[in-house]
């Protein structure tokens, strides 16, 4: 589903290790490859800070997919038609798949999936703050597809050209598969907007809750985003937070009008001079509160993930034990 601008981890907002100014030959070669839009592959030399930045970003992206299964999964059992149910299962399943592709990409940087999950479970690793908001109505499922996935796609398309090969390839796959996600969300909203008075009210109430958190999803303003410069130089992050946010607003406002929904921003106004929408101030205090663990669902989401992992331990152990036994038996038979 989605990666937020991930420069939100206080520890890593200050780059751990600067690339030393045009130093050793392998560093020069590395940067030349990146500058020429070449790809870095797992066994190639790379600066340690590049590896760490990527590992952090890819694993946070993977965690976001996995945690992102919960808010929508919350409505699978209550989907209002069998067709919607099937679509929603397929979508949440895709998120599991995307998490898996991303963990795989991150594993090429030398950390196992279990280690990454341990970081998530202990609260050390972050994931997209948007999933710490609750899904209270069916309209929220539409909203996640339409707005959250819509925002995610804007963020993810540039990542298909990321300098790190495995990440870029995973993102190409993710983007290809996600093309239906935003549409199904919009389709849910369209049905609601054409529906009964209750359904229309449900849609509006949902937009009122989601609009601002979705805008915050693009991450802090460029001016406050310490890490972006380095990430841009490495071609890990290719478009700035503010640019993406503006692009998203410009694309979304007409869609909301089409749905007959009112965007909850008094200051929202088309600016003929800039050719963009002006919009009101984002509540960054709320954003940081949620990022730092004080959102409505942070604890629940994490607890659900930890529970699934812990309750699955005996299953994973059993499967491993069986495979070991079976191999031993085969050796014995062969001997």
């Amino acid at each position: 589903m989605y990666t937020q601008s991930m420069d939100t981890d206080p520890e890593t907002r200050n780059p751990v290790a600067k690339v030393s100014a045009v130093g050793r030959p392998e560093e020069q070669r590395f940067q030349a490859t990146v500058d020429a839009e070449g790809k870095i592959e797992p066994r190639d030399w790379m600066p340690e800070a590049y590896r760490k930045t990527l590992l952090r970003q890819i694993s946070q992206h993977a965690h976001s997919e996995i945690i992102g299964m919960f808010p929508e999964g919350n409505w699978i059992s209550r989907a209002p038609s069998l067709k919607r149910k099937a679509i929603l299962i397929a979508k949440v399943q895709d998120e599991a798949g995307h998490g898996l592709y991303l963990y795989s990409a991150a594993e090429t940087l030398g950390q196992s999936r279990d280690e990454m999950m341990a970081a998530l479970h202990s609260g050390r690793a972050k994931y997209s703050s948007i999933f710490n908001y609750p899904t209270l109505t069916w309209a929220d499922v539409g909203m996640i597809g339409w707005l959250v996935d819509g925002a995610a796609i804007m963020n993810q398309i540039p990542l298909c050209r990321c300098s790190y090969g495995p990440y870029a390839r995973a993102m190409i796959r993710v983007c290809k598969e996600e093309s239906f996600h935003q549409r199904q969300g919009f389709d849910i909203m369209l049905s609601l907007s054409k529906g009964t008075a209750d359904q229309k009210a449900m849609a509006q109430e949902s937009l009122d809750r989601w609009w601002w958190p979705v805008l915050a999803m693009f991450g802090p303003p460029d001016a406050d985003s310490v890490h972006s410069g380095q990430s841009a130089q490495w071609k890990i992050k290719r478009v700035s937070n503010d640019e993406l946010r503006q692009k998203f607003i410009d694309a979304t406002v007409p869609q909301a009008e089409l749905l007959g929904l009112r965007i909850p921003d008094e200051k929202l106004k088309w600016n003929t001079q800039t050719g963009h929408y002006d919009f009101g101030p984002i509540d960054w205090d709320d954003f940081w509160r949620v990022v730092n663990g004080e959102g409505p669902c942070n604890k629940e989401r994490l607890a659900a993930r930890v529970k699934a992992y812990e309750e699955g331990q005996w299953v994973r152990d059993a499967a491993m034990a069986y495979a070991v036994k079976r191999k031993a038996r085969q050796h014995k038979e062969a001997a």
Binding site: S112, D114, A118, D317, M320
Partner: peptide
């Protein structure tokens, strides 16, 4: 940063419990 983290991908670290092979 712990020693483990410094080692990064080149170290032979193993998860706490046995992870399924890749």
């Amino acid at each position: 940063m712990s020693e483990d983290e410094k080692q990064g991908g080149t170290g032979g670290r193993r998860p706490l419990v046995q992870e399924w092979p890749l």
